[in-house]
Simulated assay, not measured.
Amino acid sequence: MDPYAVRIETSDGQKLGYVPGVHAQVVSTMLKNNISLTLSVKKVQPTIAPQWWLQVTLKGNLNMNQKNIFTENNLDDLIYRVA
């Protein structure tokens, strides 16, 4: 099991899929740090390969003034771990 897996579902709990692995660690870390994220479905293509069914955008807001969560150093560490 992937410790960074992030399931995507509708507001009523219907499973849509998972955040692609290449992005999962960043998204998982943001969620664990209570960063508000908004996912929007941009395109649905159910007739092609399942991994391409949905095109989505994900937006979040970082509050750099929030104490003890984000500093320039730990943001750099996160970027380096994921890259």
Rank of each mutant, 00 (worst) to 15 (best):
M1C: 13
M1S: 15
D2W: 04
P3E: 05
P3A: 04
Y4H: 14
Y4D: 15
Y4S: 10
A5G: 06
V6F: 01
V6H: 04
R7C: 14
R7N: 14
R7K: 15
I8A: 10
I8H: 08
E9I: 01
E9R: 14
T10A: 07
T10S: 15
S11H: 08
S11Y: 09
S11G: 09
S11N: 11
D12P: 02
D12I: 07
G13T: 03
G13N: 03
G13I: 07
G13A: 07
K15D: 13
L16T: 10
L16A: 11
G17V: 06
G17D: 14
Y18N: 11
Y18R: 09
Y18K: 01
Y18D: 11
Y18W: 10
Y18A: 05
Y18L: 09
V19L: 12
V19Q: 12
P20C: 10
P20S: 09
P20M: 08
P20H: 08
G21F: 07
G21C: 09
V22M: 10
V22K: 05
V22G: 04
H23V: 03
A24C: 04
A24F: 01
Q25L: 07
V26A: 06
V26K: 01
V26P: 00
V26L: 10
V26M: 09
V27P: 02
S28M: 04
S28W: 04
S28C: 13
T29W: 00
L31M: 03
K32H: 04
K32W: 00
N34K: 04
I35L: 08
I35R: 01
S36P: 06
S36G: 03
S36Q: 07
L37E: 00
S40W: 02
S40E: 06
S40P: 00
V41C: 09
K42H: 12
K43T: 09
K43V: 10
V44G: 09
V44I: 15
I48M: 12
I48L: 13
I48R: 13
A49V: 15
P50N: 13
P50S: 15
P50Q: 13
P50V: 11
Q51R: 14
Q51C: 11
W52E: 15
W52P: 01
W52F: 13
W52V: 06
W53P: 06
L54N: 15
L54W: 15
L54M: 14
L54F: 15
Q55I: 13
Q55N: 12
Q55S: 13
V56E: 00
T57R: 12
T57Q: 11
T57L: 10
T57F: 09
L58N: 01
K59Q: 07
K59D: 01
G60T: 07
N61C: 00
L62K: 00
N65C: 11
N65A: 12
N65V: 08
N65K: 12
K67R: 11
K67Y: 05
N68P: 05
N68E: 13
N68T: 06
N68I: 05
I69Q: 10
I69V: 15
I69F: 08
I69C: 07
T71E: 01
E72Q: 12
N73V: 07
N73I: 05
N73K: 10
N73H: 09
N73A: 10
N74H: 03
N74G: 02
L75I: 12
L75S: 05
L75H: 03
D76T: 08
D76W: 02
D76G: 02
D77F: 05
D77T: 11
D77M: 06
L78S: 01
L78I: 03
I79F: 04
Y80L: 04
Y80T: 04
V82C: 11
A83Q: 06
